[in-house]
Design a protein around this nucleic acid. Sequence first.
DNA 1: ACTCTGCTTGCACGCGCGTGCAATAATTAT
DNA 2: ATAATTATTGCACGCGCGTGCAAGCAGAGT
Lengths: 333, 333
Amino acid sequence: MPDNAAPGPVVTADHVAEAAGVSRWTVARAFKQDASISPRSREKVMAAAKKLGYAPDLLAASLASDRSHLVALVTNDFNNPHKLVLLERLTRILWSHGWGTLLVNMSESEDASAALLAASQRRVDAAVMIGTRFDDRVLDTALGARRVKKLVVFARYSSNPNTLTISCDDRLAMREIADHLLKKGYLRPAFIAGPDTQSAKLHRLDSFLGYWAQRTGTAVRAQHARRYDFNAAIETVNALLDSEPADQLPDVLVCENDILAIGATEALRHRPGGPQRIAVTGFDDIPLAAAPSYHLTTYRQPITAMCENLLDVLAGPQKEDVFLPGKLIERGT
Amino acid sequence: MPDNAAPGPVVTADHVAEAAGVSRWTVARAFKQDASISPRSREKVMAAAKKLGYAPDLLAASLASDRSHLVALVTNDFNNPHKLVLLERLTRILWSHGWGTLLVNMSESEDASAALLAASQRRVDAAVMIGTRFDDRVLDTALGARRVKKLVVFARYSSNPNTLTISCDDRLAMREIADHLLKKGYLRPAFIAGPDTQSAKLHRLDSFLGYWAQRTGTAVRAQHARRYDFNAAIETVNALLDSEPADQLPDVLVCENDILAIGATEALRHRPGGPQRIAVTGFDDIPLAAAPSYHLTTYRQPITAMCENLLDVLAGPQKEDVFLPGKLIERGT
DNA sequence: ACTCTGCTTGCACGCGCGTGCAATAATTAT
DNA sequence: ATAATTATTGCACGCGCGTGCAAGCAGAGT
């Protein structure tokens, strides 16, 4: 905390330099992590800086160094509370390591290029698509057109070779869920999927179907919701149940995420013919999943580990795609 | 869309100038809204810019002009899905008007000064505290120490004179809710409040109590939750109900926001002695409030109007605090 | 005392663009 | 046709700091 705030003109490194009796560059060194500077000079500088209330101007630093320490967080799905968890973790961890986060909303267009252009005009060091639907093809043009140095796909998959994926291991996750269901004696699961599955941004559907077939030799029925929200899930579940004879109903609904799972629970609970006793599983472990009314068995993504991987990616040169194991959260199912 | 992406060196205004056969400053003018430039030059410049894939560097522009067109969105409550609605609306509207949004997480410290310092180092033109709890006293030191040019408190109240408040009109809202309840014949409301009320960041509690007393002459019991989340609400409601004789239970729980309301509903539904038939109202109209299981009567804040007011504040000189009317959403209650 | 090594400091130059004014070209008035 | 206006364009300077190198300095070795 500065001893006396200088409400007048902005304090620059020059002022500090003068006050400390050193050159401007020594001031810069004092603020740099492992710069060659004597402890004595650093102390002098820091004292002067504190007195004047100086803090380096990151904007000017960005321009000079060509590294902004800014990353764009790009999203287009603001309906899912899980986004909030991701945002909280990402912003907290990134800021604590010196990265600023620009939040970019691409829900208007479904077109990443506009969002990435905007981000690149701010000179971000990287753009992170967090849990977003997007067109894999536009990424190339967006990358080529403007200098987005790194493009990370977070909590989703992309097969674009210019992109880096950091995600939960969906295949493993679905196998764990399937194993859990088999152990509990369920025999006829149905899968409630969302729109992302269709463009292979998530591998939950095919992983589950494949593994279930492998273990039981039976096929699983899947139904797609139009959007990731309660109401779409309710419609979808009703359509599913309406289309099956009463004696062939599924005994568990495996949902691509918690939003769909909660919608599914709602649908089952308010069926025209009275509540249905069908189990439900979700994915993400949003706070509501733990509420007594749902008590949802779900799967928690390793968000902190994913964020730490992101830090590595930001720091170093391009690395390989990362798929991390999450954790099955057993509740009511 | 650039005709052919230039993957090599970054395209600057100089390159465009050369390609268009004009000076660099004419290029700048072509991109400026109402600059004095002939239509012909602008066309030439735009054509060249398109061909080269040029877009102005906002970072350099910020440094040169001392206006970054960046605003910091500061938050510390990532548990409430309503934040996501606010963030979506704010980012969409601000970006579409040329403002970049820096998302700053201050959930670590409860201390705005660290967050504001970080923001100021990025030279934001304004910081917006969105629905945050904060210590009113630190704002001054934070403002003084570093140049945060404008500080806006969004969806909360602040009495700090150096701050601008843009919020829903809580007083009016609670009166509407009270009127609605009276019309429906409720007689014994209880108020479930959160921690913010204690520091007067919200006026919902006292507004409701005051107005109810004025209209009925009876006092309303209030109970505070420790945090804004389901579980805290569940505890709080159970404590409230346990402390009252069975024949003096409230007939409606008026909750400070939807999170508390949903927790309250959960608590009532899972009471040890069986479900309680007590009505619940909320505030914010989060998506879940519309789910069939809750079908919550609640109050929708005028977010879009609030965002447009924010735009005015960002564009012009400091204005006056703004309190906008929202809308009662009548559902199950 | 002198040289060599390694540590510390100073500095010229540039990052890409905005501002304000001066110079030039296009237009209109006389 | 010439002068008076106005529309358009060019330019020097600076925003605050990083980079890479060269100069300065202290201690170790001989």
